[in-house]
């Protein structure tokens, strides 16, 4: 873009927001805060409980998709075992309370930290491999976790195929189990969590760390020759995305009050992958919106038992035809249009 075009675009922006960049930033923040507040409160008054429930489920799936999308876009690595963290943390939370008599908050912390430690150990083993092997290994690790809850020897802890009911007495962060299960009360929590995690991913992406990750993805050898470590950043990224999935799994178990082997299944992982692909992996909004879209689509088609078929079709269609996803495609389209129109203005 030439200097002339930039000034003209700035001039146009200036007429809208009357002045300097800091004012514009302030307007953006105000708009975001307005959107955040509106989104947190309005649906609880406008939407039915059923819609809220699906919406919150969609946000949870979207956050899981965010974890998949972040690693995909920043490190070129595809995780096929997101469900093992998502469901696994729920199991740990339940077991820590029922078997080891931890208080709900302590159990929550224990579950969170254990999963992070697991992610660090697993990551230390597998981020060294090539991207295809990484994908296979995350799938294998996910299956390992879902097999291990079915082990006869752990039946006392995991109840095998029956799953565990997760109830707790007292409050976690000021909310009781009933509060978490209530769709109207849970929606603002899921909404806020989606914003916080989305911003965290955005901030990491924009940071120096994000730049290093993308540079490693582009050419690992070049980075090594330039004196950068390539192992630790990728490991850190793997732990970071698992922390996102970890939070998401805890919210899920608090909301549903139940964990079962299904929550560890491959279909949860592939759903998250699809949600990421549907929304587009390049930013934070895409995967979260993709999760919500997917949840409502699943509600439409799930009744006919075609959920998994939908998943398979979506993977193929979005990778082959719409590799940027819906949101990514819209952003790209808008950008192209603005470039085109500015070009047209320049020629005029």
């Amino acid at each position: 873009m030439s200097g002339g075009t930039t000034t003209r675009v700035d001039a146009r922006g200036g007429s809208l927001f009357a002045g300097s960049a800091s004012v514009r930033a302030l307007v953006y923040v105000a708009l975001a805060a307005l959107l955040f507040g509106f989104g947190a409160i309005a649906p609880t008054h406008l939407a039915s409980e059923f819609v809220l429930r699906i919406g919150a489920g969609g946000l949870l799936l979207g956050m899981l998709a965010l974890s998949v999308a972040f690693l995909m876009s920043q490190a070129g690595l595809v995780v096929l075992g997101a469900a093992s963290v998502y469901g696994g943390v729920g199991y740990l939370f339940a077991i820590a309370m029922s078997k080891w008599d931890l208080s709900p908050t302590a159990a929550l912390l224990f579950a969170f930290c254990t999963v992070i430690a697991y992610a660090a150990v697993l990551g230390a083993l597998i981020v060294r491999t090539n991207p295809l092997a990484f994908m296979m290994l995350t799938l294998a690790a996910g299956e390992m976790i879902s097999h291990s809850v079915m082990l006869e020897g752990l039946r006392d802890y995991t109840s095998g195929a029956d799953g565990l009911v997760v109830t707790f007495k007292g409050a976690v962060f000021g909310m009781t189990a009933a509060d978490f299960a209530n769709a109207t009360q849970f929606w603002p929590i899921a909404w806020s969590a989606a914003w916080i995690l989305g911003f965290a991913a955005f901030a990491v992406r924009r940071s120096r760390f994000g730049a290093i990750l993308r540079a490693i993805q582009e050419n690992e050898e070049r980075m090594r020759f330039s004196g950068f470590g390539t192992y630790l950043p990728r490991l850190a990224a793997f732990v970071f995305v698992n922390a996102i999935a970890d939070v998401c799994g805890l919210l899920h178990v608090l909301n549903s009050g139940f964990v079962s082997p299904e929550s560890l299944g491959l279909s949860v992982s592939t759903n998250a992958l699809v949600a990421a692909l549907v929304g587009g992996v390049a930013n934070s909004t895409g995967p979260i919106a993709g999760g919500v879209l997917f949840a409502f689509a699943q509600d439409q088609f799930g009744a006919h038992g075609f959920t998994q078929l939908l998943t398979g079709l979506a993977v193929v269609v979005f990778i082959v035809l719409l590799p940027r996803g819906v949101i990514g495609g819209l952003i790209e389209g808008a950008r192209r249009r603005s470039v085109l129109s500015s070009k047209r203005r320049r020629t005029a």
Binding site: V78, L273, L277, G312, V315, V316, V320
Partner: peptide
């Protein structure tokens, strides 16, 4: 990933 999707289908 496409082969994964086709496999699911």
């Amino acid at each position: 990933l496409v082969t994964l999707g086709l496999g699911i289908i």
